[in-house]
Amino acid sequence: MPAADPRDRPIAVFDSGVGGLTVLHELLVSLPQEDYVYLGDSARFPYGERTPEELERFGMDIADELIARRAKLLVVACNSMTSAALPALQRRMLETTLGIDVIGVVRPEAAQAVAVTRSGRIGLLATRATVASGAYERAVAAVDPHVDLLAVACPDLAPLVQDPPGGDLFTRELEDVVRGYCAPLVEAGVDTVILGCTHYPLVRPMIQRMLGRHATIVTSGAALARQVEHVLGSRDLASGRAGEGTYSFLCTGDAGAFRALGTRFLQMPLTEVEHVDLAPSPNAEVPAWPRP
């Protein structure tokens, strides 16, 4: 029996919860002909306060689950996970018989921010884990060592966006939190700000108001979609269909809660959400279908 066409396999996208659906949204718009499977690790949300060792272990668990579902490309739609575990995930995939590419959100955002800054002063709003990793500083310096990056840790922002008290996201309390995180960037006079967490685009208008209209905001979705398109083209993995592909959802926490929250982040209808349990499997075997 002939092997299935690898171009027909789905692109896998994962995050700590529903925030990565903002990235999936951009992929659905930019590459609508592809199939997608999204995994939200909501049982272990938030990632922003986790250690690098925990994040690397979580990443391996998730990668094994998604590879078992025949993913042709892994997209790490989480800044904390990208910062802590992307190199280890890339090594893991290259060591398998699959040779699957793993793409993270940090490098595409950093490159776009350097391209648009006029003053050479860039700001970063991100989780504590992402800021502590120094991943954005390294990524920006790799593009242009003469650009300065001011990073601000925002430990309260992602939890408030994902699970706002009382269910109302746009409150004066949230506005005060956002204003406090933006204040150092305004004082420093940055002209470009990277939103270093996939939850933050939901409050982008609020962030823009605090930064001022002169500031350019860079998000991960659009930049990442361009890189995904490039990788698929270079690997001859782009879907050949003319119409729309499918998309499906997995989560490690409560599937009903994920579905209720997810529509707001995806801005499109959600299909049924399948609950999955991720058992630690550091030595798990992966399927041995042919390399892309």
Score class of each variant (00 low, 15 high):
residue 292 P to L: 08
residue 181 Y to H: 08
residue 230 H to Q: 11
residue 150 L to Q: 15
residue 131 V to K: 04
residue 212 G to T: 00
residue 282 P to L: 11
residue 262 G to A: 13
residue 179 R to G: 10
residue 213 R to H: 00
residue 186 V to C: 13
residue 24 L to R: 00
residue 118 R to K: 15
residue 243 G to H: 07
residue 143 V to N: 12
residue 69 R to K: 15
residue 264 R to P: 03
residue 252 T to R: 05
residue 39 L to F: 02
residue 98 L to N: 14
residue 204 R to H: 05
residue 271 T to K: 08
residue 288 A to I: 10
residue 37 V to F: 12
residue 217 I to L: 14
residue 194 I to T: 02
residue 271 T to Y: 07
residue 2 P to S: 04
residue 245 G to M: 02
residue 277 D to L: 11
residue 49 E to V: 14
residue 144 D to Q: 11
residue 105 V to Q: 01
residue 192 T to K: 03
residue 36 Y to R: 10
residue 127 T to P: 11
residue 151 A to C: 08
residue 130 T to P: 06
residue 269 P to H: 06
residue 275 H to W: 08
residue 29 V to D: 15
residue 260 A to K: 00
residue 192 T to F: 03
residue 275 H to S: 11
residue 119 S to P: 02
residue 216 T to I: 02
residue 146 H to A: 13
residue 38 Y to G: 03
residue 217 I to A: 10
residue 6 P to M: 00
residue 88 A to H: 08
residue 250 L to G: 05
residue 43 A to E: 11
residue 130 T to E: 13
residue 165 P to K: 05
residue 111 A to N: 10
residue 64 D to A: 14
residue 46 P to H: 12
residue 186 V to K: 13
residue 6 P to D: 10
residue 14 F to Q: 04
residue 223 A to T: 13
residue 9 R to G: 06
residue 18 V to H: 06
residue 134 G to V: 04
residue 122 I to A: 09
residue 105 V to C: 04
residue 41 D to Q: 04
residue 28 L to F: 03
residue 188 A to E: 05
residue 164 P to L: 14
residue 251 C to G: 08
residue 206 M to C: 07
residue 108 P to V: 10
residue 131 V to Q: 00
residue 72 K to N: 03
residue 38 Y to Q: 09
residue 83 S to M: 01
residue 213 R to K: 00
residue 52 P to H: 01
residue 241 R to P: 08
residue 132 A to P: 02
residue 123 G to R: 01
residue 119 S to K: 07
residue 19 G to K: 11
residue 245 G to D: 05
residue 26 E to T: 15
residue 41 D to V: 04
residue 122 I to R: 01
residue 86 L to Y: 04
residue 139 A to Y: 13
residue 256 G to Y: 09
residue 129 A to H: 14
residue 200 Y to R: 12
residue 20 G to N: 14
residue 20 G to Q: 05
residue 125 L to F: 12
residue 98 L to D: 11
residue 2 P to F: 06
residue 259 R to S: 15
residue 195 L to Y: 13
residue 144 D to N: 15
residue 20 G to E: 11
residue 46 P to T: 15
residue 195 L to M: 12
residue 89 L to S: 11
residue 150 L to R: 15
residue 209 R to G: 09
residue 51 T to Q: 03
residue 201 P to L: 15
residue 222 A to R: 12
residue 76 V to Q: 05
residue 235 R to Q: 01
residue 117 T to H: 12
residue 11 I to N: 03
residue 119 S to W: 06
residue 112 Q to I: 01
residue 197 C to N: 06
residue 9 R to C: 06
residue 116 V to N: 10
residue 234 S to G: 03
residue 11 I to T: 09
residue 241 R to D: 08
residue 153 A to E: 12
residue 64 D to V: 14
residue 110 A to F: 10
residue 231 V to Y: 03
residue 8 D to E: 14
residue 148 D to V: 09
residue 224 L to P: 05
residue 14 F to V: 01
residue 238 A to K: 02
residue 107 R to L: 14
residue 65 E to N: 06
residue 25 H to S: 09
